[in-house]
Every structure is written in structure tokens, then in C-alpha cells.
């Protein structure tokens, strides 16, 4: 005689197909994964020549600091010349010339005494054609701010290149 039990039958799902797909997905993502270094931007505004003259009629022009980056051959930097219409200075050639440039910008903004001077001051770079781009970025870095004890101190936010790119 057959004895009936009250226990319900255990329903078992077949997981094999799902696990197969899941593993294939996992392998796909692992194979296509690339560790990429974080990238950042320096924003530069390069208004068109006609537009910039129109704007000058209505807006007060920002205080301009001209920075000339001079190449010393093989694309390496030789000197940094700074002219802010009051005084002209030359930094380098030395290892610390970019730090000196940062100190100069910091001193200048502090001397203005205006907390908004970081917004009202603009830097125009005049760069030798063959100077390596990494030095240009270093110079932009130097005028944009400095890192003190892990905190960023912002200096000048407005950066532009001199429009005439001589073909060197």
C-alpha cells in the first residue's frame, strides 16, 4: 500500500543556462575593461577676433598679464617673461621657474587687495612655436593655482593664447 506524505515536492529551477550567460557576460566585461587615468580640462576662451573687439566697447577689459614662454632648443623651455604693463620680469632658466611664476601671480593678486581679482585678471600666453606642449601645460598650471597641504588655492581662471600662431 502506498503511503502519501503531506510534504510538498521541492520545485527546483534549472539555473545552468542563466549561470552560463552570466559567466559569459562577466568574461566580456573583464576582457573589455581598461583602467584609464582620470583626465581633466583647462578651459580656455578664444573669442573670434571680430567678436572680441565688439565686446571691448561694452565691457571693461580684464587686467591682462602677458606671459611669454621662450624655447631654448629641442622644445625645452628656456625662460618665462612676464609683463603686466607695470613691470617686466624674467624667470629662469632654472628648475624652479614655474614655482617662481606661481609666487609672482600670487603676490600680484594679493597686492591688488581685491578678492575678485582672480576673476578680473586674465593671462595671455605668447608661446614659441616649437616649445613642447607639456611646458605650456605646466605654465597654465602655475598661473591657475597651487596646491598647499592638499588644498587647491585658485589663482587665475581666465587663460588665453595670443591669437597669432607664428609658424616658427
Amino acid at each position: 500500500m502506498r503511503i502519501e506524505t503531506d510534504e510538498p515536492e521541492e520545485i527546483q529551477l534549472n539555473m545552468t543556462a542563466m549561470i552560463d550567460i552570466v559567466f559569459q557576460l562577466l568574461i566580456f566585461f573583464i576582457m573589455t575593461f581598461k583602467v584609464v587615468a582620470q583626465e581633466g580640462d583647462f578651459n580656455i576662451k578664444m573669442p573670434l577676433a571680430s567678436q572680441s573687439t565688439e565686446q571691448l566697447e561694452f565691457e571693461e577689459p580684464p587686467e591682462l598679464i602677458r606671459i611669454m614662454l621662450r624655447s631654448g632648443g629641442q622644445g625645452k623651455i628656456n625662460t618665462i617673461n612676464v609683463d603686466d604693463d607695470i613691470q617686466a620680469q624674467t624667470f629662469g632658466p632654472s628648475e624652479t621657474m614655474f614655482a617662481e611664476l606661481t609666487d609672482y601671480i600670487e603676490r600680484k593678486l594679493a597686492a591688488d587687495g581685491d578678492p575678485e581679482s582672480t576673476e578680473d585678471t586674465e593671462v595671455e600666453f605668447d608661446i614659441d612655436f616649437d616649445l613642447k606642449y607639456s611646458y605650456t601645460v605646466k605654465a597654465i598650471d602655475a598661473v591657475s593655482g597651487k596646491v598647499v597641504n592638499g588644498k587647491t588655492k585658485k589663482l587665475i581662471g581666465k587663460v588665453k593664447f595670443k591669437n597669432s600662431a607664428n609658424d616658427g
Binding site: 622644445g75 614659441d128 612655436f129 616649437d130 606642449y133 607639456s134 600662431a165 609658424d167 616658427g168
Partner: peptide, 14 residues
């Protein structure tokens, strides 16, 4: 590229 001449960057911007 870090070693590109800056003049080329300016030329591209131009």
C-alpha cells in the same frame, strides 16, 4: 601629446 610643439596646438585652435 605632451611632446607636441605648442605651435601646432595653436594652429589647430586657429
Amino acid at each position: 601629446h605632451a611632446d607636441s610643439p605648442t605651435g601646432l596646438v595653436q594652429k589647430l585652435i586657429s
